[in-house]
């Protein structure tokens, strides 16, 4: 049976790493409006990470706080799923990642919000409203790109293909998520239908993030994210 700490650290790491990834778009998005939207989503996720990691630190009771968990933990100790650490790629690949992940995250948080662990439930209830918007934003773009030009359609399809191998891990027995699968599949299918896109072909899933077996991408992400606290431990401003 997983403890509150286990749940909180997984939820916190998912949000932290995806928030960091999305913020890489800041100043680089195709339009100012898109730049702002992605930065907003990144900030939502960073806010969720702060709450979940603070709870994890409290549960752990070893004198660490949310910042210590975020900035002074090594790559093998991170428990995020692999999809959130995948590179941004082009805009369509970023949208594919957001679309697949946010749909899962919304279903999961809605369930946790009703669950008997009050501290987790309170954070989930707050976060689920934000994630509902992330789903809406990403789904709109899946339809726009999929139902757009030949170029945008090809890119959207490639983006989904790239991210699809990390879907299985989301439902891999963690947090009781397996029961969310039918609802998730129905949402994904409805949006893909509206976009005129095919469901990617089944592929060999890649697992391991929840055990700390990460892709090489996470180490590079942490280098950048943790640099300041590693170089100047305890620095504040």
């Amino acid at each position: 049976m997983d403890s509150v700490f286990d749940h909180a650290i997984r939820l916190g790491d998912d949000a932290l790493i995806l928030g960091q990834r999305l913020s890489e778009w800041c100043g680089h998005a195709p339009m100012l409006e898109v730049d702002l939207a992605l930065a907003n989503i990144a900030l939502d996720l960073t806010g969720q990470a702060t709450l979940f990691l603070a709870l994890a630190a409290e549960e752990e009771g070893r004198g660490r706080d949310a910042d210590a968990l975020a900035f002074r933990r090594d790559v093998l100790d991170f428990r995020n799923c692999l999809i959130v650490e995948q590179p941004n790629g082009d805009f369509a690949q970023t949208i594919a990642r957001q679309f697949l992940f946010s749909n899962w995250q919304e279903l999961l948080l809605a369930e946790i919000a009703e669950a008997p662990a009050p501290a987790l439930a309170a954070i989930a209830a707050k976060a689920v409203k934000e994630v509902r918007y992330h789903v809406r934003y990403a789904s709109e773009w899946v339809v726009r790109l999929g139902d757009g030009t030949q170029e945008s359609r090809g890119r959207m399809s490639d983006g989904l293909d790239w991210m699809w191998r990390f879907v299985e891990e989301l439902f891999d027995a963690v947090d009781g998520a397996a029961s969310l699968r039918p609802a998730w599949e129905a949402r994904i299918a409805a949006t893909l239908r509206a976009a005129g896109l095919e469901r990617p072909r089944p592929m060999r899933p890649i697992l391991g993030g929840r055990k700390g077996h990460h892709s090489e991408h996470l180490g590079h992400l942490l280098c950048e994210m943790q640099f300041l606290q590693r170089t100047y431990p305890g620095a504040t401003w």
Partner: peptide, 20 residues
């Protein structure tokens, strides 16, 4: 003001830009 391809996208962009 915002740039957007259609009204729906304009509403989303407006939400992100002016009601954060």
């Amino acid at each position: 003001s915002v740039h957007a391809a259609d009204a729906r996208m304009a509403l989303e962009a407006a939400r992100d830009t002016y009601t954060r």
